[in-house]
Design a protein around this nucleic acid. Structure first.
Lengths: 155, 155
DNA sequence: ATCATTCCTGACCTTTTTAGTCAAGAATGA
DNA sequence: TCATTCTTGACTAAAAAGGTCAGGAATGAT
């Protein structure tokens, strides 16, 4: 299981745009340099982010991209969904030719394990906003943000 | 993000073996049929599970595979690690040519997000045992097992 | 108006990973 | 002794990830 380059890159771009929020739009080319992302790839990712309504594009000279809303209102969940389509893919029926003899139906107890995992991951991603990441970066708030707090129960 | 076929298949095999725990070893071919996994693929997966010490093989006629310990002591985390090598791969440096100009070092605030996710996923997998899945399957205990309980805090 | 800037679209390519197959061989128990 | 069952490792095919490219259209600056 791993974080794809699209997700990593998209997150970098969004964090950078968050830092520039309120200022002038940032051209894709500058984002590519700043965030160390291949120039032709960055455009593709930005298109997805735009279609998802997370960023706004401005044509013409001194154009570029900017966040379409405040960094507080944008979560990693939204970023991941924008570039990958879904945070967690359904497992059911993927590994069973059609649905015949599917181990995931009726009495199967395995699929709930994956479904639950998807919920947990989604829940976590929803709890992390661009603003929180930025805050962490600036080191402006001493204490760790909520999403970095220790897990509650057992070891 | 998704569950690979290896993980899904390995889990099916382990659950089936858990159900047969204490009885005679189960041949790979029978596992393939029972769990609807390609026959030649099942052996490969079982080899990994054996090398990880999760199952024991018995040669000769009436041989086969059996769990190497009680289903209570085997977690999904162990199964995933056995077939995929790691539950969650490090993100750092994967997307930065070498380490030069790496966004993941020093002041970068993104990598902790992924690291934390890895911890959460690992923690979850560690909480799910084969015994728990089996119990759920049998419907023997009315209430949901711990790992299916509602998440604690906010919506 | 013109023109450099910047985004838009979609096709294309390469590499890596996933998923699955195959065959020869060695150990074991009946 | 021999059918059964695992062992090993190489091999292949398909899908996904990762990245490139080119032609075009919109916009703002001058």
């Amino acid at each position: 299981m791993r974080i794809t380059s699209s997700i990593e890159y998209a997150t970098r771009l969004m964090v950078t745009l968050a830092a520039e929020h309120g200022k002038a739009p940032v051209p894709a080319e500058r984002l590519a340099e700043t965030d160390n992302v291949p120039a032709d790839y960055v455009s593709q990712i930005l298109v997805k982010l735009r279609r998802a309504g997370l960023v706004t594009s401005h044509l013409g000279s001194s154009g570029g991209y900017s966040l379409s809303r405040t960094p507080c209102k944008i979560t990693i969940e939204q970023v991941v969904r924008a570039v990958d389509g879904a945070v967690f893919e359904e497992v059911c029926e993927r590994y069973d030719d059609g649905a015949k003899d599917c181990r995931h139906q009726g009495q199967c107890a395995i699929s709930p394990v994956w479904t639950r995992l998807g919920e947990i991951v989604t829940r976590y991603f929803e709890s992390v906003t661009l603003a929180a990441i930025l805050e962490q970066k600036a080191g402006s708030c001493g204490a760790s943000p909520a999403w970095l707090e220790k897990l509650a129960p057992g070891k």
